[in-house]
Design a protein around this nucleic acid. Structure first.
Lengths: 409, 409
DNA sequence: TTGTTTTGTTTCATCACAAAACTTATAACC
DNA sequence: GGTTATAAGTTTTGTGATGAAACAAAACAA
């Protein structure tokens, strides 16, 4: 862990050479993305118009996608002069597992390539200090049960797992999850379900929740393309999304807004620093400061405020002030003037939004130019407590859309 | 300026289709990058081995580069059995102008595709509150004089201009440069030298200084590929470089570390926030706090410290503390555990490095894993006061290397 | 002089896509 | 109902990129 300076490869490969099959892969991906990104079904001719490819080329590419079960044809639609078009739409036969382990629950979702929730299984329980092997083995069993009966009609593309901690990008190793008490483990192995977890995508909970905002359904970007996401949990996770891609940094740990310092003389943080945002706006800190049980639901906090509790009000104000400071710094650093609040921060939106929005507009450099927007994660208003599980599945499905050639084999 | 929420285009083009000429462009760039990135001259066969292209293909691509004047053949090298190889190296006939306007000087440099400094012209003077039209017109004249006599043997690729302010990426407009007192102007037009400034690359001073660190010579990456750069001037500029690319953000303003908040109750900053890093570590703030003239050279500050001035010592300590806080937050946010100090911060390296390095290692999340490195910009030790001017030229030349097809026409 | 080795070139086959002609399937109009 | 107009999708042909393999060139070595 406490490794010495890593040896850098003296000459990394610049990139690989292009060939004709590269062209095909690239155009296949272009057609797939165009198809999935469109809110309305597109015909081959529509795709040709949208991509500048010829109809002939699109036809052949679409044939490949049909053959691979990635898309299907719908009934022809008449009504206008000319030969009727054949709409081509995402095939819901392909699907992926999205899983999440959190301090308070585990969840498994099966999601189709068209974005539909096919099945779901959730368990609640206190997982702080739990044994990762036990929890993950059980998660694997749950996933297998969930799949039963579906594999006759569907085909599994892969699985994704969201964890509340540091995940080393590439290797899929969890380095540490402070709020679970887990360190240094390989989730794919512990799940003991090699058929399900071959190529398991392991990701940080905030990063994957951000994916589900950037892509409400697989391959289709939502209205927010550049934004900073904050996940309000025991810790404050964060992710920075630019043009639909989650920023990774060198190891895949970028976006840790919870550990932006908002007061150099503030309380110490287990991360080694002091006065991190998390120390003011993390759920347990907030609840304690409000005079409530650390794991009390947000509704209690809101009630307390409405009942006139000064402690509750002060706690939220302190969190808001910390949030303002951290976000202004973050926006100045990343130049992404849009913020989405998730978890308990989203649920406290009515108290936080106006203040934070005003601060961001008045104090961030980009504030005066773009009219930055602060909003609440949709998932909060629809009472979805596990957007990261959905995001994990979507991330897996996006891989298919972004490189269909690899899936077609 | 104070625009309302910008209207987002509902459907941006996903990307354009690939064709055979795309393959050629891509491989041409691959060959060029391989050639320029190598410390030793490469033969066609070497390039083939390095890229997995065949010798036949490499030969044809190199022929194009030769024809375009981007590379030249050197004398064959014998000594080993087999047909002697023909080394192919960057051609120094192509060159670019790199210019910089700062609060205290202007500079114009002419730099060859091989990285050599061909000519240089600098002027000093207080440009705070100066008239941009006058300054830029004079800069254009200087550039033209500098070029005289060189255009018989060289060919100008283009020009780059570094400015200490906010530049809107794409348009090349300077929105504001607080320390010059300039706002809202189009440098390319004001320079009144359309032959030189066609396609002028305008960039932020810190961003372009970072380019000259990432690329010590055009197309050849230095040892630092991921790093956070801090330019110490009146203001503290910053840039984040990941894999050799400067992070832009939505408008091109990412990396403003000078406006990370290190004390929410600190002194107000013209940017609208409070307690920005710049308020503690900007050169004039630092000098005043040390009891010196605001524009005194760093050497005086060092002397004062060595003479035992407590004010000077305290000022540097305060700057160091602010730097620590800002950098820990920044590293947590970007996951780039490497820092390069430029300008007066680099010149104060002996006082800052140990403290800052310890802070970053002990308090940043990535600190415990990678052994983060804090170092001083090479340009400071070689007494080059204008790395951004070099970076501006290098950025222009890199465009040729990254897409030779566009240059060949 | 002959053989060996490596570089660089030539020739030919393959495979994507573009262009354009063609086929198919519908609506609109007389 | 027959004809025309219109648009979707397919077939055919040509172009241009790379790869593979044979070939030519230029050195060293025995």
């Amino acid at each position: 862990m406490d490794t010495t300076t890593s040896v850098r490869r003296p000459h990394r490969a610049l990139e690989s050479s292009a060939t004709q099959s590269t062209v095909r892969e690239s155009n296949l991906a272009l057609v797939a993305r165009t198809l999935f990104d469109s809110p309305e079904p597109l015909s081959r001719a529509d795709i040709a118009a949208a991509t500048t490819l010829t109809r002939a080329t699109v036809s052949r590419l679409v044939d490949d996608l049909l053959l691979g079960g990635i898309v299907v044809e719908r009934e022809k639609t008449a009504g206008t002069p000319g030969r009727p078009a054949t709409p081509v739409v995402p095939h819901n036969r392909l699907c992926a597992l999205g899983m999440q382990v959190n301090a308070g629950f585990t969840i498994v979702r099966l999601i189709g390539l068209d974005g539909a929730l096919i099945a779901e299984s959730a368990t609640t329980g206190d997982l702080v200090g739990s044994d990762p092997a036990t929890v993950l083995r059980e998660l694997g069993r749950t996933a297998r049960r969930l799949l039963e009966g579906h594999l006759q009609t569907r085909r599994l593309v892969g699985a994704g797992l969201a964890l509340p901690g540091l995940v080393r990008s590439g290797s899929g190793l969890l380095l540490r999850a402070p709020n679970l008490g887990w360190t240094e483990l390989a989730p794919a192995e512990l799940m003991a379900a090699p058929d399900l977890t071959a190529g398991l995508l392991v990701g940080n909970e905030a990063d994957l929740a951000a994916v589900s905002i950037a892509y409400p359904t697989p391959g289709r970007q939502g209205p927010q393309r550049d934004f900073i996401y904050l996940s309000g949990e025991i810790g404050i996770g964060g992710a920075a999304v630019l043009d639909g891609r989650v920023m990774a940094g060198r190891h895949g740990w970028a976006g840790e807004i919870g550990h932006v310092c908002v007061d150099p003389d503030g309380p110490p943080c287990p991360c080694g620093s002091r006065g991190c945002l998390e120390r003011f706006a993390g759920s347990r800190v907030l609840m304690r400061a409000a005079g409530l049980e650390p794991d009390a639901p947000v509704s209690e906090l809101i009630e307390a405020i409405e009942d006139g509790s000064t402690a509750a009000r002060a706690a939220v104000d302190a969190a808001a002030a910390a949030l303002e400071t951290a976000l202004v710094s973050t926006i100045n650093l990343l130049d992404i003037p849009e913020v989405v609040l998730g978890g308990h921060l989203g649920r406290l939106g009515r108290y936080l939004l106006p203040r934070v929005q005003a601060a961001v507009r008045g104090r961030a450099i980009a504030g005066r130019f773009d009219g930055p927007v602060v909003s609440v994660d949709q998932h909060v208003t629809t009472d979805d407590a596990a957007p990261a599980a959905t995001g994990a599945a979507v991330a897996v499905l996006n891989q298919v859309i972004d490189n269909p050639a690899a899936w077609l084999g």
